[in-house]
Simulated assay, not measured.
Amino acid sequence: MSTTSYIFVAGTSRGVGQEIAKYLIAHNIKVKALLRTETAAKELEVIGVHPVLGDALNIDDVERAILENEPIQAVISTLGGLPTDSVKPDFIGNKNLIDAAVKAGVQKFILVTSIGSGDSVVAMPPQALEALKPVLILKEQAEQYLINSGLNYTIIRPGGLKSEPATGNGILTADPRIVGSIHRADVAQLVCRCLNSTNANNQILSALDRNMIYPGLPEFVEFNLD
């Protein structure tokens, strides 16, 4: 990635998005982020993120963040709603980001969703699927909108997320039947590797820790980013 332009990361106030921002900055890549609160903006500024105040649900805020000032080379979105959100950003927030990215002519859009979205629904245990179904529907809508946008995309669907430090055992597979767990920091590393991988262009991939894949699943092939 160029050192003169920015990677725009949505969802940096917590979780995988924040891990992605930390990883990019540690590798001397400039990061710009849209944040809803002054508190979050200040916290991210401390680690080197260039914050822009705004809400992903507001298209004007998103366009201002992506289209104005510094050039954006790629967009990474980990947007996902909390149970307390009355309007979840999983579709509409990502739609706004995708529309702005199209206008800005970004080189790549990486969308982080979840195993259980789209054709990976087959990997989910029925009980978990029932609980997560409303949000998985929104995530699938966002995936389809990105696929149809004309942007160069990579969709990453992590398994169950854990907060411990990276293990280095994160893998990707294009096989939608595989499910398990992965640490957020390992998802971040895989996402960032996809930025420079032409193999990852226009792919939908599941992200898992090779040591935390559920037993009894079919044999599968690891996806090669190099």
Rank of each mutant, 00 (worst) to 15 (best):
Thr3Asp: 15
Thr3Ile: 11
Ser5Met: 12
Tyr6His: 06
Phe8Val: 05
Phe8Asn: 03
Ala10Leu: 02
Gly11Ser: 01
Gln18Arg: 11
Lys22Thr: 12
Ile25Asp: 06
Ala26Lys: 07
Ala26Gln: 13
Lys30Val: 04
Leu34Lys: 02
Leu34Ile: 04
Leu34His: 00
Leu34Gln: 08
Arg36Phe: 00
Leu44Ser: 01
Leu44Arg: 10
Glu45Arg: 13
His50Glu: 15
Pro51Asn: 09
Pro51Ala: 07
Val52Gln: 15
Gly54Cys: 08
Ala56Phe: 08
Asn58Phe: 01
Ile59Trp: 04
Asp61Cys: 10
Asp61Asn: 15
Glu63Tyr: 09
Asn69Ser: 05
Ala74Pro: 03
Leu82Cys: 04
Pro83Arg: 11
Asp85Lys: 05
Val87Tyr: 13
Lys88Val: 11
Pro89Asp: 07
Pro89Ser: 00
Asp90Leu: 10
Leu97Tyr: 06
Leu97Asp: 00
Ile98Leu: 07
Asp99Leu: 15
Ala101Tyr: 11
Ala101Asn: 07
Ala104Val: 04
Val106Thr: 10
Gln107Met: 14
Lys108Asn: 00
Lys108Gln: 03
Lys108Val: 03
Phe109Gly: 01
Ile110Gln: 00
Thr113His: 04
Gly116Cys: 10
Asp119Met: 05
Ala123Glu: 03
Leu129Trp: 04
Lys139Glu: 14
Glu140Thr: 14
Gln141Tyr: 08
Tyr145Thr: 07
Leu146Gly: 05
Ile147Tyr: 11
Ser149Met: 11
Asn152Arg: 08
Asn152Tyr: 04
Tyr153Thr: 00
Leu161Ala: 03
Lys162Phe: 10
Pro165Lys: 05
Thr167Pro: 00
Gly168Leu: 04
Gly170Ala: 00
Gly170Phe: 04
Leu172Glu: 01
Ala174Phe: 06
Asp175Ser: 08
Asp175Cys: 13
Pro176Tyr: 07
Ile178Ser: 01
Ile178Glu: 09
Val179Phe: 15
Gly180Cys: 02
Ser181Pro: 03
Ser181Ile: 01
Ile182Cys: 04
Arg184Ala: 05
Val187Trp: 06
Gln189Leu: 07
Gln189Asp: 13
Gln189Cys: 02
Gln189Asn: 09
Asn196Lys: 04
Asn202Leu: 08
Ser206Val: 15
Pro215Val: 06
Leu217Lys: 08
Leu217Pro: 10
Pro218Arg: 04
Phe220His: 05
Val221Gln: 15
Glu222Arg: 12
Phe223Cys: 06
Phe223Gln: 04
Leu225Ala: 00
